[in-house]
Nucleic acid binder design. Sequence first.
DNA 1: GCGTATATGTGATAATATCACAAGTCAAGG
DNA 2: CCTTGACTTGTGATATTATCACATATACGC
Lengths: 157, 157
Amino acid sequence: MEPLAFHHHDHSHCEGDVMHRAEALAKEQGLRLTPVRKRVLEILLEAHKAMGAYDVLQRLAAEGFGNQPPVAYRALEFLVEHGLAHRIRRLNAFTACMHPGEAHSPAFLICRQCDSVAEADAAGVRAALGASADALGFTIERSNIEALGLCPACKAA
Amino acid sequence: MEPLAFHHHDHSHCEGDVMHRAEALAKEQGLRLTPVRKRVLEILLEAHKAMGAYDVLQRLAAEGFGNQPPVAYRALEFLVEHGLAHRIRRLNAFTACMHPGEAHSPAFLICRQCDSVAEADAAGVRAALGASADALGFTIERSNIEALGLCPACKAA
DNA sequence: GCGTATATGTGATAATATCACAAGTCAAGG
DNA sequence: CCTTGACTTGTGATATTATCACATATACGC
Ligand SMILES: [Zn+2]
Ligand SMILES: [Zn+2]
Ligand SMILES: [Zn+2]
Ligand SMILES: [Zn+2]
């Protein structure tokens, strides 16, 4: 898992690459990556940052899709459900997954200055959390791990 | 840090105990634990689970306090700000801190069945998260760590 | 093609959160 | 005592986020 967000990279390439993997994944798992869903994923990838459902909706409406909230929420829900996007609760927002297919429950690093969001490796974090939960007899099914702070770029400035 | 929530305990005692510590803490730090703020903390302690701002507001209104959202939100914000309560983003809700004073950035274990919320020790989790962030040059200022799953009681049933 | 499950469009509404401004409280300092 | 300024609360309005209900359309298995 590479930490794309905080390093310079050919973004158009990363867009295409992730999109390509997402489509392959959908085919492989028999998911229906319909036009709306695909477009929402593209929008998230283009933005390369967390977007609110209504921001996404605005883009969709401008392109001739429905303009009611459920249109955006349903597509986003689908993407999150199938690991193609993530929900950032701290921001009431969504972001494309940069590592579709690689089973992961990432941690999110959110820059309070520039609003960029990076997926960090959370294997160690999950292990520690699991240990704490075990000690209490609690069984974890899902988890949200989000950190707010300053990204390298904003720290420099 | 004891995991109160998932074990039987004399709840009225725990209420009084935590409240007592919170008041001592407020005095010590020159915080103004006004009637509304104190009452909100009591309400959260009585409930012993996460409550939405509007649930709290309803209780306040019934007791003669203001009945507009800012009344609840301001008190809750104050409590969170000063470590007397926590915000559970996954639930859009708030819960009293069971360990006021003890500096901690806890992890929350949320039962999807009975909605109980426990604060788990997150020292190890924070360390792991910090390491992941360091590797990306990201500086963490705050973090939310929330896990959804089944508590011991609901697992048994 | 037909029937069924799934997906989308659309209007309405619910739930959550913030803004703006007036009025009240409180603790110094003069 | 009175003024002043910081903080707190009350209140109405509004913004933002999310879901419901139901009709229509599309895709898929047969
Ligand atoms: Zn991801
Ligand atoms: Zn930044
Ligand atoms: Zn706590
Ligand atoms: Zn439970």
